[in-house]
Computed example of a mutant assay.
Amino acid sequence: MRDHGGNLDAAIARYGGSDWIDLSTGINRRPYPVPALPQTVWHGLPTAQAQTALVRAAAQAWGAAPETAGLALGGAQAAIQLVPYLLPRGGQACVLAPSYNEHGACLRAAGWQVHDTPLPADMAGADLAVVVNPNNPDGRHWAAQDMLDLAQTVGLLIVDESFGDVTPELSLLPHSGAAQNVIVLRSFGKFYGLAGLRLGFAFGSRAMIGRLAKMAGPWPVSGAAISIGCHALADGAWADAMRGQLRQDAARADAIMAGAGWGCLGGTDLFRLYDTPDAQTAQDHLARHQIWSRVFPYSRHWLRLGLPGPEHEWHRLEQALGDLPST
């Protein structure tokens, strides 16, 4: 099994209970209010026109360059699983590390030789390179021009902007027409807090996106995802207000953790990464208060936390940290 956040089943199996707050992911716990859906989204197959409208809404919301093609998929994960088959397998791939482990895992499963690299500059010469920007879990980030410069040194560049809604100034999408060998991935579910909808996007050249579309098949997303996605992506006022709210929430979380003696190592306004004396002990303590967090097999000290949403979740987190054993 690959190591992931969101594995709440494992927490329940180990600790019991049913009233959990899952902070093991970077999914916004202040979700977009889902509108009433027409019955047609359940009864008929999604039309090509509806899918095109959804991609157009995403492109407008995220400022994609006019010449950039797009494809809606069942979450950014669906794109991650298809990307390894865009080029002949067996080549050399570089993946920014540490980062979201599905990129490397999917490439290896498809026969690629994968090298974990700490910096984009170390990727020069790779047949395929993957950068998560901003990065998960440490929040490292690079300007769009840095990504365009990197694209000139690799065969195909994948820029995963799954957490990019909180840092729109970093997005490569407004500049994506400048490079034909770049694919930008975006997640809908994280920022909009609707991960269960399973909606994500890939943007790139018409040739590359056309190949992805053939692999994805004729109905890669549901009618419900199209309807909700179009509505939410057009709601710029909600997105602007949410960015401000999450910025405040991130600062609040950092202050709470500082009081517990945990220093912030980075993150985004959707998740924070903290330095703890012992991450496994910290996770275990929070779990006994039915708050699930994320630890990493490559670090004894890193603990990642998503941000609570409703006020009662903040109170539970503060209470849990209030009886944290001194170290």
Rank of each mutant, 00 (worst) to 15 (best):
D3K: 14
H4G: 02
G6D: 12
A10P: 04
A11I: 00
Y15K: 04
G16E: 11
G17P: 09
S18L: 11
D22C: 04
L23M: 07
L23G: 12
S24F: 14
S24N: 05
G26L: 14
I27W: 01
Y32A: 02
Y32C: 00
V34M: 12
P38D: 09
T40N: 06
V41D: 00
V41G: 10
V41M: 09
W42R: 15
L45D: 14
P46W: 03
L54G: 03
V55Q: 08
A58M: 05
A61C: 13
W62R: 14
A65P: 05
A65F: 03
T68W: 02
A69P: 04
L71N: 00
L73C: 08
G74M: 05
A76E: 10
A79F: 12
I80A: 15
Q81C: 12
P88G: 02
G90Y: 07
G90P: 01
G91H: 02
C94V: 05
V95Q: 04
A97V: 00
P98Q: 09
N101E: 12
E102L: 15
G104C: 01
A105L: 14
C106G: 15
R108K: 14
V114T: 07
H115V: 13
P120N: 07
A121E: 11
M123F: 07
A124Y: 00
A126H: 04
V130M: 03
V130F: 01
N133S: 07
P134R: 06
D138I: 08
R140N: 02
W142M: 05
A143Y: 01
Q145S: 12
M147Y: 00
D149L: 13
L156H: 11
D160E: 06
E169R: 11
L170E: 01
L170T: 00
L173S: 13
A179I: 02
Q180S: 15
I183A: 07
S187K: 11
S187F: 01
F188S: 07
F191S: 09
F191A: 09
L199R: 10
L199P: 04
F201V: 08
A202E: 00
F203H: 04
G204D: 11
A207T: 15
P220R: 09
P220W: 06
A224W: 03
A224F: 04
A225R: 00
A232P: 10
A234E: 15
G236H: 14
D240F: 05
A241Y: 03
G244M: 10
Q245V: 12
Q245N: 13
L246T: 12
L246V: 09
L246Q: 14
A251Q: 13
M257A: 15
G259I: 04
G261A: 12
G266M: 06
G266L: 08
G267N: 06
D269M: 04
L270S: 00
D278W: 06
H285W: 13
I291Y: 05
I291E: 01
F296N: 11
F296T: 06
R300P: 07
W302V: 02
L303Y: 03
L305V: 10
G306N: 10
G306V: 05
P310N: 09
P310L: 08
H312Y: 12
E313C: 13
H315E: 14
R316L: 10
L317S: 10
L324G: 01
P325T: 10
S326D: 14
